[in-house]
């Protein structure tokens, strides 16, 4: 069952120096209870994809094209007021920076109760009771007492748990987590990922997890979308991405993973991907990875390859998918 259906999403920013093509034609679906990881390096457009779904880009110079459907209903046709009813209730977000994402002037109880009372007709007391329940759900000990705490009194990991409590307060169908563990210690990271797994298992929440950490992907994701220069280049199951990586860029990412080199006996050198990411100011009709690609041929710069099935539920945007450095 599809909960979210993103098709031909385009996001452009108008700046003084011209247009920035942040997202160029991205399509994917998200099933109920599914965890989809959006993976790519900084600037590939993964966060922009995530923030454009609940329309949180908040910039007057932004143009969003394509459509986002939630249970079949087109979100792009909603006005701002109708969108407010969706945010926090059907689609909610956990942000990357737990240190600054909470309001320093309000208690955490206040900030959790705000989203509850925004979407549900609950009394102050009932909202408070629900807030305690949520803090327990995300594993904050002594929840009733912590309601009166201010963000600065909590550690980064605890703040991120509070952010998750806010995000799941109204049992959203889709939870978007934008690098939720990047700013945290590795030991805390596992605990946070555990919460996501539990939410998926108990409430059937569908999760879009933005990350550049393939370790996180291996740990928790069901499916993976690898993004490069504003496009998805490979979309497959989490197993396939590690066992059958087909796009040369995906293979490059995996080659640069220290843990994998260790697993393979520790004698292999880490590889890097030569060249640089193309600037987002153009959108030429060619494979944008071609200049850095060991398998590139003339064909790659004549026409852009589209996402095509190479195996069951495994799509790759490449004329020469498969292992090895030469086609």
């Amino acid at each position: 069952m599809r909960v979210l259906d993103v098709s031909h999403l385009r996001v452009e920013f108008g700046t003084e120096d011209g247009r920035i093509f942040a997202v160029k034609d991205v399509s994917f679906t998200l099933g109920r209870g599914e965890i989809l990881a959006l993976v790519g390096e900084s600037g590939c457009g993964k966060s922009t994809v995530a923030m454009s779904i609940p329309r949180l880009l908040g910039d007057s110079n932004v143009t969003i094209g394509g459509s986002v459907r939630l249970n079949g209903a087109d979100l792009s046709s909603l006005n701002e007021k109708e969108m407010q009813a969706v945010r926090g209730k059907d689609i909610s977000v956990v942000f990357q920076e737990p240190m600054t994402s909470l309001n320093p002037a309000y208690t955490i109880g206040n900030q959790i109760a705000e989203v509850i009372r925004q979407h549900q007709k609950l009394s102050r007391q009932a909202a408070k009771a629900r807030a305690i329940e949520l803090l327990e759900l995300v594993g904050i000990p002594d929840a009733a007492r912590r309601l009166g705490a201010f963000p600065h009194e909590l550690s980064g990991g605890m703040r991120q748990r509070v952010m998750i409590a806010i995000a799941v307060a109204c049992d959203p169908q889709v939870l978007i987590a934008d690098e939720p563990t990047t700013a945290l210690d590795v030991t805390i990271q596992a605990g946070i990922l555990d919460i996501f797994r539990r939410l998926r298992d108990t409430l059937g929440t569908s999760i879009i997890l933005i990350t550049h950490d393939l370790g996180v992907v291996a740990d928790i994701a069901d499916r993976v979308a690898i993004m490069y220069a504003g496009r998805i280049v490979e979309l497959c199951s989490a197993q396939d991405v590690f066992s059958l990586p087909s796009h040369p860029y995906t293979r490059g990412l995996l080659g640069a993973l220290p843990a994998r080199a260790v697993m393979q006996g520790g004698r292999r050198r880490l590889t890097d991907i030569p060249g640089f990411v193309p600037p987002p100011t153009t959108d030429p009709d060619e494979c944008q990875f071609a200049p850095r690609c060991p398998r590139a041929t003339a064909e790659c710069i004549i026409r852009r390859p589209a996402l095509e099935l190479v195996a069951a539920e495994h799509e790759v945007a490449c004329y020469h998918p498969g292992p090895g450095d030469t086609p």
Binding site: Q84, A85, R87, G88, F95, T100, L102, P104, V115
Partner: peptide, 25 residues
């Protein structure tokens, strides 16, 4: 333009509430 205002926005509050979050600070 603070992060916590974006958080407030992601909760689905009105523009007025967003501003009051920022005003308090």
């Amino acid at each position: 333009s603070a992060d916590y205002v974006r958080t407030a926005r992601s909760k689905g509050v009105t523009r007025g509430r967003e501003v009051s979050h920022a005003l308090r600070n």
